[in-house]
Design a protein around this nucleic acid. Structure first.
Length: 289
DNA sequence: AACTCTCGCAACCGCCCCTCG
DNA sequence: TCGAGGGGCGGTTGCGAGAGT
């Protein structure tokens, strides 16, 4: 007696999403907000699993997400966060509010892992296989210091505008997220006009993300997210993990996580030794796994 | 020009955790 | 307190595009 599947396998469509399906999903989420994904297929007539709907929304249709074009700074941040946190992509993604965990995971698997593997192999050839514990603790500490710096940089950039985006610094994070969302969705109709032969997968005119990105468009009615009273409040949710916690912390509501409070301490290194010891232990533990 | 190989990424799968009745 | 169900997450797969031969 296994657990029943999350959704009825029969009559559930799989594979690439069509623009029509995207539109239906976006409209629904704008009206009702994300959540209660189980109800989405039933209420929209989409022949999709609820999980598929959620995934499509969070990884592709959600407002404010940026796709591809990882900067060097983001590369480093991801590498160091991965070293610290392991393959906890959702946690890592929370430090890059306009990136999705799936995107980061893919980027790690296809680019960064290989990039790291090459010097590692060279190093293995050139140096003794296992450094003494003291040696690599030192190395790890250096890594952690680097991670701290990278994170601090990223957070300071976030204060002016999320993750170094090249948009006007006068805009708030929410406003920028709304604009990005507007851009993403407003491109959809353009993308639909892609000739059938160019489409990917079985669907006749599925626009690739690349196609959607290359097109330029103006804001459509569909994208009027900020004015919606829906609980989604698309833009606000995008940056929620990091910014909410910062706001909460500022208000004294919720304590920062160990890593965050550690990072936000003065550059002068007035951190608590016990806390750092805990982080080091955690990193060591992750490394050993 | 045709074929093969490799890469990149969207989406699926299944496990785990959290919430609610 | 416990079980069921929904959602979140990480690992993996499938497929199209582009590079190489």
């Amino acid at each position: 007696m296994g657990r029943p599947p999350c959704c009825d396998k029969e009559g559930v469509k799989k594979g690439p999403w069509t623009p029509e399906e995207d539109l239906i999903l976006v409209s629904y989420v704008q009206d009702h907000g994300p959540g209660n994904w189980r109800a989405v297929p039933a209420n929209t007539g989409l022949m999709r699993c609820s999980k598929s709907c959620r995934l499509r929304w969070t990884n592709y249709l959600r407002p404010g997400i940026r796709r591809g074009g990882f900067s060097d700074k983001e590369d480093k941040l991801i590498v160091h966060l991965q070293a610290l946190l392991g393959n906890r992509w959702a946690a890592i993604a929370s430090y890059l509010p306009d990136r999705t965990d799936n995107d980061i995971k893919n980027y790690w698997n296809t680019h960064l892992k290989k990039k790291l593997l090459v010097p590692q192999q060279q190093q293995q050839r050139a140096s003794p296989p296992t450094p003494s514990k003291g040696q690599w603790e030192l190395t790890l500490q250096t890594d952690i210091d680097l991670a701290r710096r990278a994170l601090r940089e990223a957070l300071s950039v976030d204060a002016a505008g999320p993750t170094g985006r090249t948009t006007s610094p006068a805009l708030s994070a929410d406003e920028q997220a709304v604009q990005a969302y507007a851009r993403n969705v407003s491109r959809m109709p353009d993308a639909w006009s892609v000739p059938a032969g160019k489409s990917r997968g079985g669907s006749p005119a599925t626009p690739t993300p690349r196609a959607a990105e290359s097109a330029s468009g103006s804001t459509s009615d569909l994208t009027e997210c900020s004015g919606s009273s829906a609980p989604t409040n698309c833009a606000a949710r995008v940056a929620e993990p990091l910014f909410r916690r910062e706001a909460d912390a500022a208000a004294g509501d919720v304590p920062l996580s160990a890593i965050e409070s550690w990072l936000l301490e003065d550059e002068g290194g007035e951190h608590q030794p016990a806390q750092e010891g805990l982080l080091l232990d955690t990193a060591l533990h992750n490394f050993a796994l």
